[in-house]
Amino acid sequence: MTDLPASSAGSATGVSEPATRATEKPMRERLVRLADHFKREWQIYVMLAPMIIWFLLFLYKPMYGLQIAFKDYSIFRGIVESPWVGWEHFETLFNNSQFLRAVKNTVIISALSLIFGFPVPIFLALMFNEILHALYRRTCQTIVYLPHFISTVIIAGIVITAFSPSAGIVNTIIGWLGIEPVYFLTKPEWFRPIFIGSGIWQEAGFSSIIFLAAIAGVNPSLYESAVVDGASRWQMMWKITIPSIMPTIIIMLIIRIGNLMEVGFELIILLYQPATYQTADVINTFIYRQGLQSGQYDLAAAAGLFNAVVAFVLVMTANSISKRVSRTSLW
């Protein structure tokens, strides 16, 4: 009902100012149509509202705070009152060789975890799918899901213990082979394999759920048809299962690429040592040490913004490549 005065006002100006009429009329018509639509379908808009409000409140409003990346931010003064400093924080970052090293490490660790970590849940899902005995399958699944529910602190403890030079299982095993114990967690060259490996160990099982769901969604008659056509289980996996879940794989890959710059930094904080900074220090840990520990929120925001922009470019690129090559895309 509130639309009525607005539209009549629109028509009034339309009459008094014929010059603007041409541009105003379609606009007005559109508004009127929108109002009609709203009156008819208001339930749908009501249902939409919580989502819109959620987005505005929790995603768009915080973006307002990104501007502190360009300000000399003081919590007490607030965002608006803090003075602008332009690109100063970015200059500080890019003039810092440790930041550049962190960027490099972030990219390397992410890329390696993507290369080695991404296929593992798919393999797991395919393997689970081949287990016919239901109880055995469920047991296996539970076992590999389990690490996901262990807190990062415990995971770090397990990793530290496992790689301990005196009592760790890894050194015990290589000791049998006659190799001297290695203090893995202080060796820069071992940090990435250990970090990526423990990440895979923790998450691969749980991540396989989505691929299992995709496999479960494959029409069973495709397999029956293939059986009649004479396909072996191996051929069915390659020619039916994998192509059928390819859209899921690609979507997950795009999402992973979007998170490429987000390295699980809690685990790094718990596992790294000054001795391994050269391979372990990522953007997030750098920010943690540099910014948050000493309250430099503006600098941290600048680094975070840089991170986000890179991630955005990556995900856009991955999406458009995928759209062109495989006809699958997030949007």
């Binding site: 029409n219 008659s221 009649v228 396909a231």
Partner: peptide
Amino acid sequence: APKDRDVAMVFQNYALYPHL
């Protein structure tokens, strides 16, 4: 085994491979 029976089957939902 099904493949050695020399039969071919047409399914209700066609069982076409969507990716081919």
